[in-house]
Simulated scan of single mutants.
Amino acid sequence: MPEREITEPVDLCLPSGRLAPEAVGWTRRPLHRANLRGWGRTKRWEYWGVVTPDHVVGLVVSSLDYAGVLGIYVLDRASGVETVHDDVVPLARGVELPERCGVGGVQASGASTAFVFDQDHERTTIRATAPDLTLDLTVAVVPGQDSLGVVVPWSDRLFQYTVKDLARPVTGRLTLAGTTYDVPAGESWAVLDHGRGRWPYSMTWNWAAGSAAGRGIQLGGRWTAGTATTENAVLVDGRLHKIGEELAWEYDREDWLRPWRIRGERVEATFHPFHERVARTSLVVLAGETHQCFGHFTGWAATDDGERVDLAGLVGWAEEARNRW
């Protein structure tokens, strides 16, 4: 489907709080200001996914208006042991999230967790703590490397702005139960999911992301169906190639560790999981279930000029999330 590339800064919302028509499209770098208004359906979050040779890390800082949902997840890839710390903060008190992606600070704390993300044009520094866990990371901004920004319009009242920033080099340290692990340069990759919008109460989505040096794959499904936009792209040597089609996702909900297949005219990707993470939430108005698998990609995706890019060597995740929020 045809999708408009936005090349100049734009506000996400009109003064009324409704979606600005000129904000609908996609970008190669963050250009939207999320000037959201209203309460109750507004969602804001920063999610960082990090894959190292030894660990997988997931960090979420979110405000859902009536609650702040915070989380730290660490997987030991060798043993399969998971470390999970989650907090819910009533009315999202103290959760700070900026209007623009990649600029300013993110701060939040709960009963067991605390987060500080400092962002500028050269790097993001991440500090997160929980009982027996400290994470100190530096995520570099690669000069000239594209990210994918997309506005998904369900209506002029319900819409989402997302930035998926792939293949960000990361270094630092993880201290877990008294043992410190290095996050080695050149072998560790971070992906940012920056989200701002106003959502329907019930929604299901698929998301897959894989990274390597200067390369990445970003694939989404279900939540964009029937809108004017998709969130599919392949990153090659730092250049983003937008894939404007809804893709077919095939996976086994009885056996999540079987290969996933994601297909379209420009994508033939197979995802091979090595671990499944299951996250469930049930808090009256807030409920959800996510199956997030970590693994490797094979197959290909086509660039704008039709070149088929080999996806072998990309490491990341694929997931299904079902939320009532």
Rank of each mutant, 00 (worst) to 15 (best):
P184H: 13
A225Q: 14
A248C: 09
A248R: 15
D146N: 13
A228I: 06
E231H: 13
R258D: 12
R253A: 14
S155G: 10
D182H: 10
W256E: 05
A208N: 07
G178W: 08
N232W: 01
V191C: 10
W223M: 10
V152S: 08
P153M: 07
E187S: 14
Y181S: 14
W256S: 06
A213G: 04
T171F: 06
L257Y: 03
L235R: 00
G216V: 06
V234G: 04
D193L: 05
E245G: 09
V163W: 04
K164H: 05
L158P: 01
G210M: 08
R198K: 15
R198T: 12
A233H: 03
H194A: 13
D146S: 08
Y251V: 10
Y181T: 14
R253I: 09
G214Y: 06
T224M: 15
L257N: 14
L148G: 01
P169H: 00
R215K: 11
G149I: 08
R157A: 15
A208E: 07
G221M: 03
E254R: 12
Q145P: 00
E254H: 12
F159M: 11
Y161P: 04
S147M: 13
H241D: 12
L240R: 01
R261H: 15
T230S: 07
T230I: 02
A233G: 10
T229D: 03
V170S: 09
T162C: 09
G178Q: 10
T162F: 05
L176S: 05
P259Q: 02
G195M: 06
G149H: 06
L148Q: 02
T180R: 08
L166H: 09
V163I: 14
I243A: 11
T227I: 00
L148R: 01
D165L: 06
W207L: 01
Y181H: 15
T204Y: 05
E250K: 13
L247Y: 02
Q160R: 07
L192R: 12
R168S: 03
A212R: 11
P143S: 12
D237Q: 12
D193F: 06
G149S: 10
R215D: 09
Y181M: 06
D193Y: 04
E250G: 10
A209D: 03
T179E: 13
E231W: 01
K164D: 02
A248I: 12
L257R: 10
I243P: 09
G186C: 08
H194F: 15
G197L: 02
A177F: 07
W189T: 00
Q218C: 13
P184C: 12
R261F: 07
Y161A: 09
P184N: 10
